[in-house]
Simulated scan of single mutants.
Amino acid sequence: MAFDPAHPVLDLGESSTVLTQQICDVESVSGDETLLADAIEAALAAQAPHLEVVRDGDTIVARTHLGREQRVVIAGHIDTVPLNANLPTRYETVDGEEYLWGRGTVDMKAGVAVQLKLAAELTDPVVDITWMWYDHEEVSNDLNGLTRLARNRPDLFAGDFAILGEPSNSQVEGGCNGNLRAEIRAYGLRAHSARSWVGDNAIHKASEVLGVLAAYEPRQVEVDGLVYREGLNAVGISGGVAGNVIPDEVMVHVNYRFAPSRSGAEAEAHIRQLFPEFDVRIVDLAEGARPGLDAPLAQRFVAAVGGEPKPKYGWTDVARFSAMGVPAVNYGPGDPLKAHADDERVRLSQIESCEAGLRAWLTGAA
């Protein structure tokens, strides 16, 4: 029977590449995850009787209860950023490599597909596992499914180690940068543009803010053996009243990605120090996470999947687990540079290698 994205029935016995295509073809832009969450819940109930399944909103949690000495949390989000004529998915070959093209293939439904397949098949892993598939990751933190789950069921986060299936080219990426967004405001005095000398043009003052940003040299910071690159950039600017009015206010929207060696409070202080003469308003702040690779479970995981660990430059929910005292890493198929891109596509070999690496580690085969 052909797969129908409007009425999805997931067969967790399919290959992880086929599952990726099916999951991606079910549209689940943030705020519209219910159809996919329903399909995941139904598939687990029918095909994974060894798991306890818990639902909170559109977040699905599935757990083993084998009495193992250690528990691992493996999580992935099921939402995507908005579409732009990039569904349904399709297979394509680029430079001899096979890819699955389409929204969500990289961020991060390929990782979710691998996790679902392993959740159904691994009935006797060497550690107890808590699988989490959550909603609203691509939007503000207050809507994030893990934020809600931590409030409603904090017990579900218990674990000795956590893995986020965020795209990392199927290599281990430790920790993540912190993320701060600030609105830098300058003020002036309105006047008729024909008599501008009696006013004070706020927009002209934005040049001072932009000058600081243009001259800024972002740091490269080594944290627990990994080098994190920071970034400070203007990502928006607004101001103006009318075509014949000298504006009395301008706002430059600034994004600061800071190394996990710096706390959120220190990041805020740094921004305020850079713009002492301006009205600085912090509108979003997410702490970073140290790599967490010194944990014994993490070291065994890295040894099992191979490769040299790298830093994660973007913010991910590893920071949430790190704040709870659970060391966490990113490990999932897909090139992060293709996340959110209109030509988003994942290499099929990375889906397969990610599945093989997780399977070997969770079964003790490596």
Rank of each mutant, 00 (worst) to 15 (best):
P8H: 03
E14Q: 15
E14H: 06
Q22A: 11
E27A: 14
E33M: 08
L35C: 08
A37R: 05
A43N: 04
A43I: 13
A46D: 14
Q47V: 03
H50P: 04
E52D: 15
V53G: 10
D58Q: 14
L66F: 06
G67N: 05
Q70E: 15
V72H: 06
N86G: 06
Y91Q: 11
E92G: 10
E92Q: 13
G102R: 04
T105R: 00
V112S: 05
Q115M: 15
K117H: 15
A119V: 11
A120P: 01
E121Y: 10
E121I: 03
P125Q: 08
V126Y: 01
I129V: 15
T130S: 09
E137Y: 06
V139A: 11
N141K: 06
D142M: 03
T147G: 13
N152H: 15
D155G: 12
D155W: 13
G165Q: 14
E166Q: 10
A182I: 06
Y187E: 09
Y187M: 03
D200M: 04
D200R: 11
K205A: 00
K205P: 04
V209I: 15
V212F: 07
Y216S: 07
E217M: 06
E217K: 12
R219G: 07
R219Q: 12
V227A: 09
N233G: 12
G240F: 07
G243H: 10
G243S: 11
N244P: 00
P247H: 00
E249Y: 13
V250H: 09
A259G: 06
S263N: 08
A267F: 01
F275S: 14
V280D: 08
R281L: 13
V283H: 06
P296Y: 00
P296A: 05
V305G: 04
G306E: 04
Y313M: 15
G314M: 07
F321S: 02
S322W: 05
M324S: 10
G334H: 04
D335T: 05
A339I: 05
A341C: 08
I351K: 05
I351V: 13
R359W: 01
A360N: 10
L362R: 01
T363V: 08
G364Q: 04
